[in-house]
Simulated scan of single mutants.
Amino acid sequence: MSSYTQAFAWLFSAANWSGPGGIPTRLLQHLGYSGLTLLIAVVIAIPIGLYIGHTGRGRSVVVPFTGALRALPTLGLVIILALWLGIGLTPPLIALVILAIPPLLAGAYAGIEAVDRETVDAARSIGFTGWGVLWQVEVPLALPLIVGGIRSACLQVVATWTVAAYLPLGGLGRFLYDGLPIRDYAEMLGGSILVIVLALVLDGVFALAQRGVTPRGVIAGRITDIRTTTQSPDRKERSWLAPEA
C-alpha cells in the first residue's frame, strides 16, 4: 500500500474524527490560533499602513524595518521566545504576529498609495476633509490590495502554525509531531494534506472577498465598447459614446 493510500485511509478513518485529538478538534484549534494571530496583526499593521499611505510619513523607516522582519527565521524566533517566556501560546503567537505584519502593512500602504492622486485632489476640491478622503475615497479604492495583504498573511500564518505546534500546542501540526517519533507516516502525510486543503480553502475565500471589494471600474481595467453594430461608412466618424438616433 502506497503512502498516499495509507494517508487517505487515515484521513477517512472514523477513529480519527472523534476525541480531543481528532481532526475536527485539531482543525478548530488551528483556525483559532490562526484567527487570533491574524486579528492582532491586522489591528497593529492596518492603521499604520493607512497612516503611511495617506500622509507619506514614516515610509522610509517602516518599510525597510518590515522588510527585515520577513527575513527572521520564524521557528528560531519561536524557540528564543519560548526559552524567554516559557512554553505556551504566547511565544508562537508573538512570533506569528511578527510574521504576519509585513504583508498586511505592505498591502495597506501600497493600496492607499496606488489611488490616483487626481481622484484625491478632486475629493479635496469638493470639500472632503482629510479623514473623509481617507475613508470615503482612498480606503474603498485600496480595499483590493488591503484584502490581498490579509490573504497573503493568512496563508503564511496557517502554514507556520503547523511548525509552531512543536512547543507543544494543538492544531494540525500535532499530527506531524506526534507521528514522527513512532514513524506513523500516514498520520504525518494526512496532517500535511489537511493543512494544504485548509490553506487552499482560505485562499479561495479571500480571493472571492478580494474580488467582491474591487470596484467595477478597477475590475474592468479599461473602458470597452460593448456595442456590436454594423455601421455604414458615413457613420464611422460618429463617437461610440454618442447615443443612437
Rank of each mutant, 00 (worst) to 15 (best):
L169H: 02
P233M: 07
V218L: 14
L172H: 07
P140A: 07
E118A: 13
E118R: 15
L99R: 11
A82V: 14
V43L: 15
P64Q: 06
G49R: 06
R26M: 15
E187S: 12
I223Q: 12
P47S: 10
T129K: 02
Q29G: 07
A68N: 05
L172C: 09
D178K: 10
V43E: 05
L176M: 14
P20H: 02
E244K: 11
G148H: 07
R211A: 13
T228F: 09
N16W: 04
R151I: 09
L155Q: 13
G53C: 07
Y177R: 11
I80E: 02
W10Q: 07
L85D: 13
R26K: 13
A142Y: 05
E244P: 04
G58Q: 08
P64C: 10
G149K: 01
T119W: 01
Q231A: 10
L202M: 15
V139G: 09
D178S: 15
W135D: 00
P168H: 05
V205T: 04
I182T: 15
Y109D: 08
A15M: 02
I94P: 08
S152H: 03
D121G: 00
L77Y: 08
V197W: 05
L104F: 05
L200G: 04
V147Q: 06
E118N: 14
T214R: 12
Q136H: 13
G67T: 01
V97P: 09
G21I: 02
R70D: 00
L194R: 05
F128K: 10
P92W: 06
L143N: 07
G53E: 06
Y51T: 04
G127H: 04
G149N: 06
T129S: 15
R70Q: 14
G212K: 08
A207S: 13
G217N: 05
G217A: 11
V201M: 12
A242M: 09
Q29Y: 00
V115G: 08
P92D: 06
H54R: 13
T74R: 07
G179Y: 04
G132K: 04
G130S: 11
P102R: 10
V62D: 03
R183Y: 12
A245F: 10
L75V: 15
I48F: 12
A122G: 05
A110E: 13
G22Y: 01
A207C: 04
A159V: 15
E237K: 10
G149W: 01
G190V: 07
G130I: 00
F206K: 03
L208Q: 11
